[in-house]
């Protein structure tokens, strides 16, 4: 077992884990943050996407021990402490960008990263980035619409 110290959504965490425990499993099982979902565990579906030191990673393709000293952001960190949804989450609800909700945390974190990048977002970039993850319910159209709407509201849309 290895001790790992890191922060999640700004809070310090310490976990004793086997090296083979993935970051996603560590967040779920050791930190109780079950918003990060596992859809394939081999890096294709993107449901487990979290931000590690500011970059989106497949939580199933990084081991928990690799998070030593890292700053992790998960879906649980998006809304305000009182539960108020942030601009991206609101856009997902307004645009019906989710149905079963299982892929949603991964899309939210992927889009969060993209929207925070300098240079803004255009249609090509939007499709290129969001093609990283799979959704089985929505047909993607409303996910794209939601992120587009959030980008517009945030003033980073270059349509």
């Amino acid at each position: 077992m290895t001790e790992v110290r890191f922060t999640v959504n700004g809070a310090a965490q310490c976990a004793e884990v086997e090296p083979r425990l993935t970051l996603a499993d560590m967040l779920r099982e050791e930190c109780g943050l079950t918003g990060t979902h596992l859809g394939c565990e081999h890096g294709v579906c993107g449901a487990c996407t979290v931000l590690m030191d500011g970059l989106p990673v497949r939580g199933c393709l990084v081991f928990g021990v690799q998070a030593e000293g890292a700053d992790i952001r998960t879906v649980e960190g998006l809304a305000a402490p009182d539960g108020t949804l942030n601009v991206l989450q609101r856009a997902f609800q307004a645009q019906h960008g989710l149905q079963c909700g299982f892929c949603t945390p991964g899309f939210l974190m992927l889009a969060t990263w993209m929207l925070e990048q300098p240079g803004g977002v255009d249609e090509a970039r939007l499709r290129d980035v969001l093609a990283s993850n799979l959704c089985r319910c929505t047909g993607y159209q409303n996910i794209l619409a939601a992120v587009r709407a959030a980008a517009q509201e945030m003033g980073v849309w270059k349509g």
Binding site: P56, V129, S132
Partner: peptide, 8 residues
Amino acid sequence: AHPPLRLR
């Protein structure tokens, strides 16, 4: 692959 995989 895709952006997150390219970043890693």
